[in-house]
Each structure stands twice: as structure tokens, then as C-alpha cells.
């Protein structure tokens, strides 16, 4: 079942009106599932661009009170004529990501398997917080060269405290060999401003076109 993830417009009123965009408010993302609500706060500086297919409203109880929330079904935008995602950070869950980029060729299926294994190892530490993917895998190319990934880990993450197999994910040379991936990673304590700078930098391709990045929702 496709996951529903709450979108923007937690109506924290300012000057008597509901905030209209993520940039105007501390956006609260609430994952709706059969097991209940899972909430976290997004920093508005991350400039996430939600894309909607289905909208609805629900009431969510959080630590800070009861909120009406607008929820959305995650949908990645169409590729541009150049076969790339439009500029921005586009949020998708695994199912959406997989159906869009993971299965249209044997090369993509293989890389997708590598990505899944890499993410399982990284998440095995319990400290994987956010995942971003860019490069040829999130384009129309039938045979992407490799995977380009940024992993944001918890602030107290230490590679040496990870399982031996997982340590390969955080060693760029081993990650390249094992997963055909350029793995970038950092602790979340680099801060939202630096993360924004990082994502902005990698939205410029080596051919100097602005292209989009996928922000993968973690289960």
C-alpha cells in the first residue's frame, strides 16, 4: 500500500492567516500509517518541494497539541525534456522511488538492489536520519552509471560503532566497489544551512544544468 505522508500547512496562524507554504512555517510532517502517527519537524530551510496527487485532511495529536493536517500521496514530478528531475528536492517514499526509477532496465534493477542493500546496512545502525539521491539514477537514462547518495546520520553516529559490514558504506572506496555508489555522508549536526548548501551544490550537474534531487522518505 502506498504510504500517505502528511504535507504542509500545519496551520500555525500568523497574523490571523494560515501559513501557505513550507517556507513560512515550521512544517510538521506526520506519517500516517496503520500503527499511528510518526512525527518529526522539518526545518523550513530545506526547501522541500512537495508534489501532490491526492489531498485530504485529518486531525493529528502531537506533543504540541491537536493539528488539522493536509496529507498527500507522494508523487515525483515529470522529468524535464533533458530527462532529469526539475530543480529542487523531491520527496518520495521507497515504493514511489522504486516504481519510478528502479525497474525499467536490468541495469536499474541491479543498481536498485545495491541501493536497497546499502540503505539496509546504513539503517542497521539505527542512526540513519535522511537519504538523498541524485545523478544519473534519477534521470531517464536506461543504464545509469552509478548511484550518488547522501546519507545524513544522527549526531552521535560513529562509523566504528557500526557493524563491520555497514562500515563499508561509509568508506567511499569500498562503497564504490561494493555498491557502485558515490556515497557522501555526514552527521546531522552539520546543520540545516550546510545541508541546504550541499543539496544546492549537487543540483548543478557536471554539465552545468540544474537538476532535481530525490529525498527518500525512510520507513
Amino acid at each position: 500500500m502506498r504510504g500517505l505522508v502528511a504535507g504542509w500547512s500545519v496551520p500555525k496562524r500568523r497574523s490571523g492567516r494560515a501559513a501557505a507554504t513550507p517556507a513560512e512555517t515550521n512544517t510538521q510532517t506526520i506519517k500516517l500509517s496503520t500503527t499511528g502517527f510518526n512525527t518529526h519537524i522539518r526545518n523550513p530551510q530545506t526547501r522541500l518541494r512537495p508534489t501532490y496527487r491526492a489531498l485530504g485532511w485529518a486531525i493529528a495529536k502531537t506533543e504540541t497539541g491537536v493539528w488539522p493536517i493536509c496529507y498527500r500521496e507522494l508523487v515525483l514530478p515529470k522529468l524535464t525534456e533533458a530527462g532529469e528531475l526539475p530543480p529542487g528536492v523531491h520527496v518520495a517514499d521507497w515504493q514511489e522511488f522504486q516504481s519510478r526509477f528502479g525497474g525499467s532496465s536490468s541495469r536499474r534493477m541491479w543498481l536498485s538492489g545495491r541501493l536497497r542493500e546499502l540503505l539496509e546496512l546504513a539503517a542497521g545502525s539505527g542512526k540513519l536520519r535522511r537519504v538523498f539521491i541524485w545523478g544519473s539514477f534519477v534521470t531517464a537514462k536506461p543504464a545509469p552509471r552509478d548511484l550518488d547518495i547522501l546519507l545524513i546520520m544522527d549526531e552521535d553516529f560513529e562509523v566504528e560503532h557500526s557493524a563491520a559490514a555497514a562500515q563499508g558504506v561509509f568508506d567511499s572506496a569500498r562503497a564504490k566497489l561494493l555498491f557502485e555508489s558515490d556515497v557522501f555522508w555526514a552527521r546531522a549536526s552539520i546543520g540545516p544551512e550546510i545541508l541546504d548548501l550541499w543539496l544546492d551544490t549537487y543540483q548543478t550537474s557536471r554539465s552545468f544544468r540544474k537538476r532535481g534531487i530525490v529525498g527518500l522518505e525512510l520507513p
Binding site: 560513529e158 562509523v159 561509509f170 568508506d171 567511499s172 572506496a173 557522501f184 555526514a186
Partner: peptide, 8 residues
């Protein structure tokens, strides 16, 4: 960890 993450 800095050495690892800075390499790429």
C-alpha cells in the same frame, strides 16, 4: 570520521 566523510 572526518577523514572518511571528506574523501569523496
Amino acid at each position: 570520521d572526518y577523514a572518511r566523510m571528506a574523501e569523496p
